[in-house]
Design a protein around this nucleic acid. Structure first.
Length: 886
DNA sequence: TAAGCATTT
DNA sequence: AGCTGAAATGCTTAC
């Protein structure tokens, strides 16, 4: 059976260019678009196994569409040179792939593809059209599916006529009418001004086509009628422009599209020239061939020795000269993880010890001694987790000197996979097996024994060893060596200490609260059933939606992808319509407390310690914040009194001690004042004024006495919005005012805080130029989508550019404070313990004789963690439990 | 496993 | 015309 794959070359290379971060080879040639294109091709070849292929390109500037409409594709920004220089490279690459390419003067790529897909239709050949352009949907048929690129380039979404109907309620041919009505700014196709996708769809569902709409203008009303009538001609012309021409006089027939696979050597040469190292490894070269400069990474060679096979003195020697260690645990929660074994690499030799070996004193004595020796440096992967797993077995891990996971996180905190196998691939090293492949997952998880396990652990220790110089060099290149060595690495050790310590939880408090909640929940449940006139599962958004919007007929405010939205925002708007709404909100509140905080927390209390031991993850949040799991102690309720009572269960672990909490006051706005240098905002903090009141005074132009609660509330919302990368839409939503008023409000704000405006403009420009933003301590976040043509993607990246330096610098600062506070406690020989971090707050347990000291020491350390142009302020409080420390 | 909802800073 | 405030985790339901 034949299978054709037709690729819209121009569309895909554009998509690839904007989707990929900037990339050049050492000759300075930009390669990102070609790279993206290549990954897409490889994936397509593998998935589709085409018998025929073609990449079509636009030829020249003028096409038949310009006849009669010269402005077609006018007003486009010139193709950036970084992209245009990649066109010839792409064509060369396609040759190396042996994929036919074609262009024809006077026609665009989509006309060529349209013509071929018509031929495919006539011959009944299964065909896939690959493009980033929605217009192509008009070509879909029983035989032809359209694969549109999504996010990035290598991911595509496939459409056949049924799926187009499902998504738009249109036939493929009606896609042309859709564009005729709504136009397309990128091609300068006007459509009917004021008619967007929503309106166009409505009209088409009603009248079927552009002609149908025009024949029925009489049935339209008001503004819409006016618009349609005045722009009739435009709609007709737009439809003509949007129609793909399917009768191009091609000089190529199907026979010339035959695809017989590529010559791996030719392709490898091309990849070497472009320096696509990871792709080079994916190529299966028939024989290794010239391992010339830049050739594929050779399989590493190392010797694997077991503890038993090595003599004690040999093992001791290997440890002394060790370059890397890999400590394997299985399980997500490191406090309960199973230690599988470890491997230590020195040069080409790797020693492996399984769990059983480690538990055998005769075999493991040298290794235990080495692990606990603070003078013996450990360079490994996720040593924070290893330290915890070992800790629960009574083995301490000291001398942590480098962590590949932490380094990888700093190099790109948004990377979705930071597994060792992924890192190895990312850095162009010979691949190692994934954990899933070796251990299986879920129900099929099974740790192998003997040589299979030993080889896997050895491969990982060797992989870490090979990664180390690459990661160190990359950190150096990114100015992050200091951040790594002096902040993140020491912090990992501090965190492990806090986690091992844990925080005491009084189960009786939770159980009492749980019993009380139970009563409330059953009461609300029966009231809700009565009101609804039926019993149903209130916890099911689907069933709840049916009851509220179908049975009770409440107005639908918002829809989700799958049905009616019933979130709190929606329910609050529905309150006036039925008493049931308030009950549901209460019910939700109580069940949340019950399941997540009462039952959830009780389950996490360890029998042996009576404590919960959270796990702070240092490599998750894109901004540099920590995250907390098992349980998450960074979202314990505080806003509402009912929930806040959960905090009464968090108590000191020793009688007579206190819980002491200190939190930074307005740290993010202080950071903003510093990095923007805004004089007005700096002044407010230097005077230690109430920032929201001060903002209200300046924005509304009134004196302090005349700032009422509402003005302050609005100012507060704007301050929050500023930190998050404000938009008038977001603010209007938040304050319940019109978008216009919100926009005016923001305008006034920026008129006062001109330095803030300048910062926001500059940081976005900088992100666009560099491709990334940084925090005060040089933490980095890449924002490739800042150049996206998709408005939503781009806007999101812009807000991220504004927010990340602020949120990330605040994260840097509290991390600094934690490392310093830990040192203070140790150096002063204090018994007080640091237990928790909640983004801008640190929580300690403190013996009575240290209370007075800690009340001043903690805020002092926090406030002096770093010197900014504005003072930092930390407020401290304490009590018999976390609730009282307010 | 994903979606929807709720919780925090 | 777009339809959007930043960063997280956990529970329940539905597929």
């Amino acid at each position: 059976m034949d299978k054709w794959v037709l690729i819209d070359g121009n569309s895909i290379i554009y998509r690839a260019f904007f989707a990929m971060p900037p990339l050049t080879n050492s000759a300075g040639l930009h390669t990102n678009a070609v790279y993206g294109f290549t990954t897409m091709l490889l994936k397509l070849l593998e998935e589709e196994k085409p018998t025929h292929m073609l990449v079509a390109f636009d030829a020249g500037k003028v096409t038949f569409r310009h006849e009669g409409y010269e402005a077609y594709k006018g007003g486009r920004e010139k193709t950036p040179s970084e992209l245009s220089e990649q066109f010839p490279v792409l064509k060369e690459l396609l040759q190396a792939f042996s994929i036919p390419q074609y262009e024809l003067p006077g026609y665009e790529a989509d006309d060529i593809i349209g013509t071929l897909s018509r031929m495919a239709d006539e011959q009944g050949v299964e065909t896939v059209v690959v493009s980033g352009d929605k217009d192509m949907l008009q070509l879909a048929s029983d035989h032809v599916t359209i694969a549109l690129t999504r996010k990035g380039v290598s991911e595509v979404e496939r459409y056949d006529p049924a799926e187009i109907n499902e998504k738009y309620g249109l036939t493929p041919l009606q896609i042309i009418d859709l564009k005729g009505l709504m136009g397309d700014t990128s091609d300068n196709i006007p459509g009917i001004p004021g008619v967007g996708e929503k309106t166009a769809l409505k009209l088409l569902h009603e009248y079927g086509s552009v002609e149908g709409v025009l024949a029925n203008t009489a049935a339209l009303k008001g503004k819409m009628k006016e618009k349609v009538e005045t722009h009739q001609d435009s709609a007709v012309m737009s439809k003509r422009l949007a129609t793909i021409f399917r009768e191009v006089p091609l000089e190529k027939g199907a026979a010339e599209l035959t695809y017989g696979g590529y010559d791996a050597h030719a392709l490898a040469d091309m990849f070497r020239k472009l320096e696509f190292k990871s792709l080079l490894e994916r190529l299966e070269l028939p024989e290794a061939g010239g391992a010339a400069a830049g050739g594929p990474a050779a399989a590493p060679t190392y010797e694997v020795a077991t503890a038993a096979s090595l003599g004690r003195s040999e093992l001791t020697q290997l440890l002394a000269s060790s370059e890397s260690v890999y400590i394997e645990t299985i399980g997500d929660n490191p406090h309960q993880a199973r230690l599988v074994g470890l491997a230590v690499a020195s040069g080409e030799r790797v020693a492996v010890l399984t769990y059983d070996d480690l538990m055998d004193p005769a075999l493991s004595a040298p290794v235990r001694g080495w692990l606990e020796d603070g003078q013996a440096p450990k360079r490994g992967y996720d040593l924070h987790k290893a330290e915890l797993a070992l800790g629960w077995l009574g083995i301490s891990l000291r001398g942590i000197a480098f962590d590949a996971l932490l380094a990888a996180y700093l190099l790109d905190p948004t990377e979705s996979s930071q597994t060792l196998a992924a890192l190895v691939q990312r850095h162009g090293l010979a691949p190692i097996q994934t954990d899933d492949a070796v251990y299986g997952k879920g129900a099929r998880l099974q740790v192998p024994e003997g040589a299979v396990l030993a080889n896997h652990l050895a491969a990982k220790a060797d992989a870490v060893r090979r990664l180390l110089p690459l990661l160190s060099e990359a950190l150096e290149q990114g100015n992050m060596t200091k951040l790594n060595d002096e902040l993140e690495l020491p912090l990992a050790v501090v965190l492990a200490g806090m986690e091992k310590q844990g925080i005491q939880v009084n189960p009786a408090v939770l159980e009492d609260l749980g019993a009380e909640l139970e009563k409330g929940i059953s009461q609300y449940m029966s009231d809700i059933y009565t009101h609804a006139g039926m019993e149903f599962n209130i916890g099911s958004p689907k069933q709840l939606g049916e009851v509220l919007f179908e049975k009770l007929g409440l107005p639908v405010i918002k829809k989700t992808k799958t049905g009616y939205s019933t979130d709190a925002e929606v329910l609050e708007k529905l309150e006036p319509y039925s008493e049931i709404v308030k009950m549901i909100l209460h019910y939700r509140q109580l069940t949340k407390l019950q399941s997540t905080y009462v039952e959830g927390l009780l389950k996490e209390i360890r029998r042996d310690t009576g404590k919960v031991h959270t796990y702070y993850r240092q490599t998750i949040a894109a901004t540099g914040r920590l995250s907390s799991q098992f349980p998450n102690l960074q979202n314990i309720p505080i806003r509402l009194e009912e929930g806040r009572r959960i905090r009464k269960a968090f108590v000191p672990s020793e009688p007579g001690w206190s819980i002491l909490a200190a939190d930074y006051s307005q740290i993010e706005l202080r950071v903003l004042a510093h990095i923007s240098g805004d004089e007005k905002m700096k002044e407010a903090f230097i005077e230690d004024a109430d920032i929201h009141t001060k903002t209200a005074m300046d924005v509304f132009g009134v004196t302090a006495d005349n700032v009422d609660a509402n003005m302050r509330r609005q100012a507060k919302a704007v301050n929050f919005g500023i930190v998050y990368g404000i938009s008038d839409f977001g603010l209007s939503n938040n304050l319940g005012i019109t978008r216009k008023d919100a926009a005016r409000f923001i305008e006034q704000y920026f008129a006062v805080f001109q330095g803030v405006r300048a910062y926001m403009d500059n940081i976005v420009a900088q992100a666009r130029q560099d491709g990334y933003v940084t925090t005060l301590l040089e933490r980095r976040r890449y924002l490739p989508e800042i150049k996206a043509s998709n408005f939503n993607l781009r806007s999101f990246a812009e807000r991220t550019a504004m927010n990340t330096p602020i949120q990330g610098t605040a994260a840097d600062i509290i991390k600094l404070a934690m490392v310093k506070m830990d040192a203070e406690i140790r150096n002063r020989g204090l018994r007080s313990r640091m237990l928790l971090q909640v983004h801008d707050e640190l929580v300690f347990e403190v013996p009575p004789e240290e209370l007075e000291l800690m009340k001043t020491l903690v805020p002092e350390v926090m406030e002096s963690a770093i010197a900014l142009d504005v003072p930092l302020r930390a407020d401290v409080s304490y009590g018999d439990n976390w609730y009282e420390a307010k």
